[in-house]
């Protein structure tokens, strides 16, 4: 295996593969042994990095919250409060309902997604190579069999989980605020309506189809926008990393450009979450 030639495509393939874990009849299995495990496969690198970064987010903000003073704030508290106010202002401007969940939800999404995206700026080969080294030295594995994808948002499971969470909240808020009848009415009685009951009966399925697509498109667009942007960015980092010394200036330029993508995508995900939940909790018709 070690003698196998490392081609460019296998190098890229290696970078784009998650570390997998699944349980088989013979106990826990990893990576290639999990090729056929289907749904019950766990991407342990995605899980570990995302949960680790989430804990870092909570630890930083919790320590600021514990030390927070209403007097003159220190520099650390100022920085944290800047982020909190950025999120809080956007929530107040966009969401006019009365919910204690939206603001912390938006803060969590913004900072968590930002931190996960930020992992994209770590040079692409550093941590995978280190993981390969550890795997080889400590567990006697072939370094090519050790997978390590350090940017959780380039895993569609991660972004889909966030979008699914937001989608569940959207439906929950819709039903709580408009009632089940209102929610179903919103799905079936628009955009086409007629006073004639017979015509209306024909129009209802059309409305249901259109509105359901519109509703389901929201979490899909949320998940795939973030995933697509970060996956493409990661891909370009990997390609740049494969071209030898010339990668240094190119990597720098792409990294600088990517800083914008990182913040922007985190912000867009947060804003759209607020907007969708705001739409879900206002009676529009």
């Amino acid at each position: 295996m070690a003698a196998e030639e490392v081609t460019l495509s296998s190098h890229i393939q290696h970078h784009l593969t998650n570390a997998k874990m699944c349980s088989t009849d013979a106990g826990l299995a990893f990576n290639k042994a999990c090729a056929d495990s289907g749904f019950w496969t766990w991407h342990i690198d995605t899980l570990a990095w995302s949960i680790g970064l989430g804990l870092i987010f909570l630890w930083i903000f919790r320590s600021a919250a514990k030390k927070s003073t209403t007097g003159v704030p220190g520099k650390f508290q100022c920085f944290i409060e800047m982020v909190v106010e950025l999120v809080g202002d956007n929530v107040r401007d966009t969401y006019h309902g009365n919910s204690k969940l939206i603001a912390p939800l938006a803060l969590t999404i913004f900072v968590w997604v930002f931190l996960m995206n930020l992992m994209d700026l770590v040079p692409v080969d550093f941590l995978p190579a280190f993981a390969g080294f550890v795997g080889e030295q400590a567990f006697g594995m072939d370094p090519h069999d050790v997978y390590m994808k350090i940017v959780p948002t380039t895993d569609v499971n991660m972004t889909a989980a966030l979008a699914l969470g937001v989608f569940i909240l959207m439906i929950g808020y819709s039903i709580r605020i408009k009632g089940l009848g209102g929610f179903i009415g919103e799905l079936t009685l628009h955009p086409f309506s007629s006073k004639n009951k017979l015509v209306m009966a024909i129009l209802i399925p059309c409305n249901l189809l259109l509105e359901t697509i519109a509703l389901v498109a929201k979490p899909f667009s949320l998940a795939l926008r973030l995933f697509g942007n970060l996956y493409a960015g990661e891909m370009i980092f990997i390609l740049i990393g494969a071209i030898g010394l010339m990668q240094l200036p190119l990597h720098f330029v792409w990294a600088v450009f990517h800083i914008m993508v990182i913040v922007l995508q985190a912000f867009v995900f947060m804003m759209l979450t607020i907007v969708y939940l705001s739409m879900a909790s206002t009676k529009s018709h």
Binding site: L58, L107, A161
Partner: peptide
């Protein structure tokens, strides 16, 4: 898509809950 989705969803819920309980109100 695989079970990672479920794990991340649980993590998401827990993080948001923690943020709502212990981070956002004091700040």
């Amino acid at each position: 898509l695989n079970a990672t989705l479920i794990g991340e969803l649980i993590a998401f819920v827990v993080f948001v809950w923690f943020c709502m309980k212990f981070v956002w109100p004091p700040l």
